[in-house]
Amino acid sequence: MLRDVLIEEPVISFSDCIIQFYFFAVSGTLECLLLTVMSYDRYLAICKPLHYHLLMNHRFCWVTVFTSWTLSNFLNIITTSTIFQLQFCGPNKIDHFFCDLIPILKLSCSDTTIIQIALKSMIALLVVIPFCIVSVSYIYILVTIFEIPSNIGRKRAFSTCSSHLTVVSIYYGTLFCVYLIPSGGQSWNTSKFLSLLYTMVTPLMNPIIYSLRNKDFKKSVRKLISFSFSLAQH
C-alpha cells in the first residue's frame, strides 16, 4: 500500500490485489477478535481480581489466540473465494488507497447483490457481536469501578483499561462508519479518509497508547519535550 501511494500511477495485478485484500481482511478480523479477548481480560482484572490468575492462565491465552487466528483465516478464505468467482470485464481502476472489498466489487461486471448481502452480514457478525461483548464487559467494569469507595482506587482501576478503551473507540468507531453506515450517508472521500484511521493511524498509535502508563515512556517524552523547547529557544 505504501509503495502504491509513493508511485504516481501504481499498477497491481488482479491476483495481487485479492491477496492484498485477504491479508488486510485477516488482520482486521483478527484485531476485532483480539480486542474482544482483551476486554474479557480487563473484565477479569477489575471485576474478578481474585480469580484472574486462575481463569486468565497461559493455556487460555494460547487457545484464544489460536482460535482467533484460525477463525479469521477461515472466514476470509471464504470471502476471498467468492471474489474470485466474479467477472471483471469493465473498468480496472481502484479509487482507493488499497484493495478493499467495496472498491473491488464496484469494478465487477457480475451481479454482486447476493455477495454484498452475504459479505455485509459477515462483516456485521464480526464487528457487531465482538463490539457487543466489549460493551457488556465495560458496563460491568464501570459498575464495579463506581462501587469502589476511594477515588484513588477508582482512578487505579480505570487506568488499567483506559488504553484498551481508547483503541477500541478509535478502531470500532471507524469500522462502523466505513462498513455499516449506508453508502448514501457519507461521501466516498470520507470513507477513504476513515479507512486510513484503522489501517495506518491506529497501528501507529497502538504502541504509544499502550505505553502511556509506562513511567520510563513518560520520562522519555518529558525529556524529548524539554530538549525540543531548549532547541527552539536557541
Rank of each mutant, 00 (worst) to 15 (best):
T166L: 09
I77V: 11
S81T: 08
P91T: 05
S159I: 02
S81A: 08
F74D: 06
T166M: 09
H96R: 08
F60T: 03
L165K: 00
C109Q: 01
L126E: 02
T64I: 05
W69L: 15
T160S: 09
V143S: 12
I115R: 00
K155Y: 13
V168A: 07
I148A: 04
V168M: 04
H96T: 04
F131P: 01
M122F: 13
P130H: 03
T70W: 07
Q116P: 00
N76R: 05
K155Q: 14
I78A: 03
K106Y: 11
I123G: 00
S137Y: 02
T112M: 10
N92W: 02
I141V: 10
L125A: 13
I139T: 11
T79G: 15
F88P: 06
I139Q: 10
N151T: 09
V167K: 00
V168F: 02
I77Y: 07
S162M: 15
F66L: 11
I94L: 11
L101C: 05
N151F: 14
S163Q: 08
T112Y: 04
I152C: 06
S135C: 13
G90D: 08
T82I: 02
F66K: 15
K155T: 13
A118D: 14
Y138K: 06
Q85C: 03
C109V: 00
F84E: 05
F97M: 05
S163Y: 04
I102W: 04
A118K: 13
A118N: 14
I83P: 00
F98M: 11
I141C: 05
W62P: 04
V134W: 01
V134A: 00
T144G: 01
I139E: 13
N151K: 14
T82F: 07
I104N: 02
S163K: 12
T113R: 15
C99R: 03
I123K: 04
P149C: 02
V167W: 02
V136C: 10
I148T: 07
T80C: 07
G90S: 14
L101D: 07
S121F: 15
C132Q: 09
M122W: 09
F98R: 04
I152N: 10
I117Q: 11
C89E: 10
I129R: 04
H96F: 14
F84M: 09
I133W: 02
W62H: 12
Q87I: 02
V167S: 03
F66H: 11
I145C: 02
P91D: 14
F131V: 04
